[in-house]
């Protein structure tokens, strides 16, 4: 008994401290590091950019517009064929945000923005930059938000070739590249084609430019794949716009109920 008591006296404080450390670390993990990102935002505030550099943005904006025109022309052509075309590719009004940090580890492709829930940014919003799609907001704190880039392997985006409407999905592959897997065995696609998000995508609105095809591997099994060069220069991105968007997570209809005949 005495030995136990002595052991307790010796180790109680240490044990409490260990529990405290693990507990608070767990708490910070569960809240997605809210506290730390808030502190980060506060500390780096003096270094944030004052206003978006207009001239540089304009050049990239022209490229963005070119890709959008290609997409719109194709859409127009389809519109004549399809009467029940749903126009939901318009992005809502945007908030401009500065990039204040990169991912806290090398295995994730993330960026940190200086707008958070105080500016009515919410998880699921779409982030676009000069050139097209940047990514999707996965976590927000009161004044920062974390964006999962389209180039992260966690990002899977339904996509289509703007010219021929061949569809598939894109998976990030680090850096500024992504791989597109086609649904068809022989897709109508060639190098240089513009890729945009498709209507199959639940997490993204359709018609947002993603990038261009850099190379194609038609012999890949089970489905042909292509390497996509993402059009947004993520490595020196400084300003992005946040577009409010609600993911279509409820597209799966509830199972039908079997109705028994009352007789």
């Amino acid at each position: 008994m005495f030995a136990l008591r002595r052991w307790w006296d010796k180790n109680a404080l240490r044990g409490v401290l260990i529990l405290l450390a693990i507990g608070s670390a767990w708490g910070i993990r569960q809240t997605n590091g809210t506290l730390i990102y808030e502190a980060y935002q506060y500390v780096t505030k003096p270094f944030h950019l004052a206003a978006p550099p207009r001239v540089e943005l304009d050049n990239a904006y022209v490229l963005d517009l070119q890709q959008r025109v290609v997409e719109l022309e194709n859409q127009n052509q389809k519109l004549r064929e399809l009467i029940d075309y749903q126009q939901d590719s318009e992005l809502d009004t945007t908030t401009l945000a500065a990039v204040i940090g990169r991912s806290a580890d090398h295995w994730w492709q993330q960026i940190i923005l200086n707008k958070g829930s105080r500016d009515r940014v919410k998880a699921g919003d779409i982030v676009t930059g000069p050139g097209g799609l940047v990514g999707r907001i996965t976590a927000v704190t009161p004044s920062t938000s974390r964006v999962l880039l389209a180039s992260d392997p966690n990002s899977q985006i339904g996509a289509k070739v703007s010219r021929s409407r061949s569809t598939g999905y894109i998976r990030g592959e680090a850096d500024t590249q992504a791989t597109m897997f086609f649904f068809e065995k022989v897709p109508d696609v060639k190098v240089g084609d513009v890729i945009v998000t498709s209507a199959f995508s639940r997490l993204f609105p359709q018609g947002v430019p993603i990038g261009r095809i850099a190379s194609i591997d038609l012999g890949n099994s089970p489905a042909p794949k292509a390497i996509i060069q993402l059009s947004v220069p993520v490595s020196n991105l400084e300003w992005v716009s946040i577009n409010p968007y609600s993911p279509k997570l409820d597209v799966d209809a509830a199972p039908a109920e079997i109705v028994n005949d009352p007789e």
């Binding site: 450390a21 693990i22 993990r29 295995w107 996965t138």
Partner: peptide, 18 residues
């Protein structure tokens, strides 16, 4: 112990897997 604590913190800043 310190490895566990800092690992949890870094998970909080990035994501849960890996």
């Amino acid at each position: 112990i310190v490895g566990i604590v800092l690992g949890l913190l870094q998970d909080g800043l990035t994501g849960n897997f890996p």
